[in-house]
Amino acid sequence: MNAVFYILAALTLAGGLATVLLKQLVHCALAVTVAFAGLALLFLQLDAQFAGFAQILVYIGAVAILIVFAILLTRGSELPKDGVFSKTWFLGLVIAAAVFAVLGWAVLASVSAVPQQNAVPSVTVRDIGIALVGRYVLPLEIVALLLTAATIGAVIVAMHEKERPR
């Protein structure tokens, strides 16, 4: 536990909180980008370079842009008249707090039972590539199929419906 971890954790959690609490949707998109960047830095801090850079590429490069596009296409920059929080916000808050209490209790009660090694794992991108086309080749193919289907599906769902011919 060093200072870098605390700074990155604070950055990530502040980004997440700002995402949930800010009123303007565009500000929320910016805040969630900060949270994604903080997570990518946490991955790098955990010696998972490949996952960290994949996080930057996929989340900051693609998902954040997608979110901004969706906000602009749905005119989300206009503030709604009756508030941004739902009528049952208190119930949602209670559920979230209860979930965090259970998760935190489970982590603190059981973490000493987990064997822990602190040596830095010596894993290169080459090892990851070999594992991807070796042991994990079937999940890789399935993910490729899923991404193709999701791309086509997203385009078809969001496409303008043509007028039906009479």
Partner: peptide, 17 residues
């Protein structure tokens, strides 16, 4: 972070949020 995301999904009214 999970709890914050869950709270956001339960509390906000906008589908994108």
């Amino acid at each position: 972070l999970f709890a914050i995301g869950l709270g956001g999904a339960l509390v906000r009214r906008n589908a994108i949020l």
